[in-house]
Protein backbone atom coordinates (compact mmCIF):
# COMPACT_ATOMS: atom_id res chain seq x y z
CA UNK A 1 0.00 0.00 0.00
CA UNK A 2 2.83 2.37 0.86
CA UNK A 3 4.14 1.89 -2.67
CA UNK A 4 0.89 3.07 -4.21
CA UNK A 5 0.83 5.98 -1.78
CA UNK A 6 4.29 7.01 -2.79
CA UNK A 7 3.19 6.74 -6.39
CA UNK A 8 0.18 8.92 -5.68
CA UNK A 9 2.32 11.47 -3.89
CA UNK A 10 4.83 11.49 -6.75
CA UNK A 11 2.04 11.94 -9.29
CA UNK A 12 0.70 14.75 -7.19
CA UNK A 13 4.09 16.40 -6.96
CA UNK A 14 4.60 15.97 -10.70
CA UNK A 15 1.33 17.81 -11.23
CA UNK A 16 2.42 20.78 -9.18
CA UNK A 17 4.77 22.51 -11.65
CA UNK A 18 2.20 22.00 -14.39
CA UNK A 19 -0.50 23.42 -12.15
CA UNK A 20 1.77 26.34 -11.35
CA UNK A 21 2.29 27.06 -15.03
CA UNK A 22 -1.50 27.10 -15.63
CA UNK A 23 -1.84 29.76 -13.03
CA UNK A 24 1.29 31.73 -13.78
CA UNK A 25 -0.37 33.21 -16.82
CA UNK A 26 -3.50 34.51 -15.22
CA UNK A 27 -3.31 34.72 -11.46
CA UNK A 28 -3.45 38.35 -10.42
CA UNK A 29 -1.63 37.88 -7.13
CA UNK A 30 2.02 37.19 -7.59
CA UNK A 31 3.48 33.71 -7.03
CA UNK A 32 1.20 31.02 -8.47
CA UNK A 33 -0.35 28.84 -5.78
CA UNK A 34 -2.62 30.67 -3.36
CA UNK A 35 -1.54 28.11 -0.73
CA UNK A 36 2.00 29.51 -0.81
CA UNK A 37 1.00 33.16 -0.67
CA UNK A 38 2.07 33.62 2.94
CA UNK A 39 1.48 37.37 2.72
CA UNK A 40 -2.27 36.66 2.76
CA UNK A 41 -3.55 37.38 6.29
CA UNK A 42 -6.39 34.91 5.66
CA UNK A 43 -3.81 32.15 5.19
CA UNK A 44 -2.10 32.88 8.49
CA UNK A 45 -5.44 33.29 10.27
CA UNK A 46 -6.41 29.89 8.88
CA UNK A 47 -3.83 28.23 11.13
CA UNK A 48 -5.20 29.90 14.27
CA UNK A 49 -8.76 29.08 13.30
CA UNK A 50 -7.63 25.51 12.62
CA UNK A 51 -6.12 25.20 16.10
CA UNK A 52 -9.27 26.62 17.72
CA UNK A 53 -11.66 24.48 15.67
CA UNK A 54 -9.56 21.35 16.11
CA UNK A 55 -9.41 21.97 19.85
CA UNK A 56 -13.19 22.29 19.89
CA UNK A 57 -13.48 19.01 17.96
CA UNK A 58 -11.12 17.33 20.45
CA UNK A 59 -13.15 18.57 23.40
CA UNK A 60 -16.42 17.42 21.82
CA UNK A 61 -15.04 14.01 20.88
CA UNK A 62 -12.95 13.23 23.97
CA UNK A 63 -15.46 14.77 26.36
CA UNK A 64 -18.84 13.74 24.97
CA UNK A 65 -18.99 11.63 21.85
CA UNK A 66 -16.32 8.97 22.31
CA UNK A 67 -17.18 8.05 25.93
CA UNK A 68 -20.77 7.64 24.76
CA UNK A 69 -19.74 5.26 21.97
CA UNK A 70 -17.47 3.42 24.40
CA UNK A 71 -20.29 2.98 26.91
CA UNK A 72 -22.69 1.72 24.24
CA UNK A 73 -20.07 -0.73 22.96
CA UNK A 74 -19.28 -1.87 26.50
CA UNK A 75 -22.99 -2.33 27.26
CA UNK A 76 -23.40 -4.40 24.12
CA UNK A 77 -20.34 -6.48 24.91
CA UNK A 78 -21.51 -7.16 28.46
CA UNK A 79 -24.97 -8.03 27.22
CA UNK A 80 -23.57 -10.42 24.63
CA UNK A 81 -21.29 -11.94 27.26
CA UNK A 82 -24.27 -12.28 29.62
CA UNK A 83 -26.35 -13.93 26.94
CA UNK A 84 -23.51 -16.27 26.06
CA UNK A 85 -23.10 -17.10 29.73
CA UNK A 86 -26.83 -17.81 30.05
CA UNK A 87 -26.74 -19.94 26.91
CA UNK A 88 -23.76 -21.85 28.26
CA UNK A 89 -25.55 -22.46 31.58
CA UNK A 90 -28.70 -23.57 29.74
CA UNK A 91 -26.61 -25.94 27.65
CA UNK A 92 -25.00 -27.35 30.80
CA UNK A 93 -28.44 -27.86 32.32
CA UNK A 94 -29.67 -29.53 29.16
CA UNK A 95 -26.60 -31.77 29.08
CA UNK A 96 -27.16 -32.76 32.72
CA UNK A 97 -30.85 -33.45 32.04
CA UNK A 98 -29.86 -35.53 29.03
CA UNK A 99 -27.38 -37.52 31.09
CA UNK A 100 -30.05 -38.06 33.79
CA UNK A 101 -32.49 -39.17 31.19
CA UNK A 102 -29.99 -41.51 29.66
CA UNK A 103 -29.07 -43.13 32.99
CA UNK A 104 -32.75 -43.37 33.97
CA UNK A 105 -33.48 -45.09 30.68
CA UNK A 106 -30.60 -47.49 31.19
CA UNK A 107 -31.79 -48.22 34.75
CA UNK A 108 -35.36 -48.78 33.62
CA UNK A 109 -34.22 -51.03 30.83
CA UNK A 110 -32.09 -53.12 33.20
CA UNK A 111 -34.97 -53.35 35.66
CA UNK A 112 -37.39 -54.39 32.96
CA UNK A 113 -34.99 -57.00 31.68
CA UNK A 114 -34.60 -58.38 35.20
CA UNK A 115 -38.34 -58.57 35.63
CA UNK A 116 -38.77 -60.25 32.27
CA UNK A 117 -36.05 -62.78 33.12
CA UNK A 118 -37.57 -63.55 36.53
CA UNK A 119 -41.05 -63.86 35.01
CA UNK A 120 -39.70 -66.25 32.40
CA UNK A 121 -37.93 -68.28 35.09
CA UNK A 122 -41.05 -68.37 37.21
CA UNK A 123 -43.17 -69.45 34.28
CA UNK A 124 -40.68 -72.15 33.34
CA UNK A 125 -40.63 -73.38 36.92
CA UNK A 126 -44.42 -73.50 37.03
CA UNK A 127 -44.47 -75.23 33.72
CA UNK A 128 -41.98 -77.80 34.94
CA UNK A 129 -44.05 -78.48 38.08
CA UNK A 130 -47.23 -78.84 36.05
CA UNK A 131 -45.52 -81.03 33.51
CA UNK A 132 -44.25 -83.29 36.29
CA UNK A 133 -47.65 -83.50 37.88
CA UNK A 134 -49.22 -84.24 34.57
CA UNK A 135 -46.58 -86.89 33.85
CA UNK A 136 -47.15 -88.51 37.21
CA UNK A 137 -50.90 -88.50 36.67
CA UNK A 138 -50.50 -89.94 33.19
CA UNK A 139 -48.12 -92.59 34.47
CA UNK A 140 -50.65 -93.52 37.14
CA UNK A 141 -53.43 -93.73 34.60
CA UNK A 142 -51.23 -95.79 32.30
CA UNK A 143 -50.39 -98.09 35.19
CA UNK A 144 -54.09 -98.40 36.11
CA UNK A 145 -54.99 -99.06 32.53
CA UNK A 146 -52.23 -101.66 32.24
CA UNK A 147 -53.44 -103.32 35.39
CA UNK A 148 -56.98 -103.33 34.03
CA UNK A 149 -55.75 -104.80 30.80
CA UNK A 150 -53.81 -107.46 32.66
CA UNK A 151 -56.91 -108.33 34.75
CA UNK A 152 -59.07 -108.40 31.67
CA UNK A 153 -56.52 -110.50 29.91
CA UNK A 154 -56.27 -112.92 32.83
CA UNK A 155 -60.07 -113.14 32.95
CA UNK A 156 -60.19 -113.70 29.22
CA UNK A 157 -57.48 -116.32 29.46
CA UNK A 158 -59.39 -118.00 32.27
CA UNK A 159 -62.59 -118.03 30.21
CA UNK A 160 -60.65 -119.37 27.23
CA UNK A 161 -59.30 -122.26 29.29
CA UNK A 162 -62.83 -123.04 30.61
CA UNK A 163 -64.26 -122.99 27.10
CA UNK A 164 -61.36 -125.05 25.78
CA UNK A 165 -61.66 -127.58 28.58
CA UNK A 166 -65.46 -127.81 28.21
CA UNK A 167 -65.16 -128.14 24.47
CA UNK A 168 -62.40 -130.73 24.77
CA UNK A 169 -64.40 -132.66 27.42
CA UNK A 170 -67.51 -132.53 25.21
CA UNK A 171 -65.50 -133.68 22.19
CA UNK A 172 -63.84 -136.50 24.18
CA UNK A 173 -67.19 -137.52 25.68
CA UNK A 174 -68.73 -137.68 22.24
CA UNK A 175 -65.92 -139.65 20.81
CA UNK A 176 -64.92 -141.82 23.73
CA UNK A 177 -68.23 -141.84 25.55
CA UNK A 178 -67.26 -140.35 28.87
CA UNK A 179 -64.22 -138.47 29.89
CA UNK A 180 -62.07 -137.98 32.84
CA UNK A 181 -62.44 -134.33 33.53
CA UNK A 182 -59.11 -134.11 35.36
CA UNK A 183 -57.17 -135.55 32.44
CA UNK A 184 -58.89 -133.27 29.97
CA UNK A 185 -58.08 -130.19 32.06
CA UNK A 186 -54.45 -131.24 32.34
CA UNK A 187 -54.23 -131.86 28.62
CA UNK A 188 -55.77 -128.42 27.82
CA UNK A 189 -53.42 -126.71 30.24
CA UNK A 190 -50.49 -128.47 28.64
CA UNK A 191 -51.64 -127.58 25.19
CA UNK A 192 -52.33 -123.92 26.10
CA UNK A 193 -48.99 -123.45 27.83
CA UNK A 194 -47.29 -125.07 24.82
CA UNK A 195 -48.90 -122.38 22.61
CA UNK A 196 -47.91 -119.66 24.97
CA UNK A 197 -51.36 -118.70 26.24
CA UNK A 198 -50.98 -119.77 29.84
Amino acid sequence: MSKSLRLAALTALAMLPAAGSFAAEHEEHAGGMPQLNFGDPLLVAQVFWLLAIFALLYVLMAGVALPRVASVLAARRSRIDGDLEAARAAKDRADAAMADHRSATARARAEAQGQVASAVARAQEELAVKTEAMNAKLAQQIEAAEAQIATARAAAMGALRQVSADTAAAVVARIAGGADRGLVDAAVDRELSARGHA
Partner: peptide
Protein backbone atom coordinates in the same frame (compact mmCIF):
# COMPACT_ATOMS: atom_id res chain seq x y z
CA UNK B 1 -7.46 28.60 -14.09
CA UNK B 2 -6.84 25.50 -12.01
CA UNK B 3 -5.55 27.27 -8.92
CA UNK B 4 -8.21 29.87 -8.36
CA UNK B 5 -10.22 27.25 -6.45
CA UNK B 6 -7.62 27.37 -3.69
CA UNK B 7 -7.86 31.16 -3.29
CA UNK B 8 -8.95 32.15 0.21
Amino acid sequence: DALHQFQL
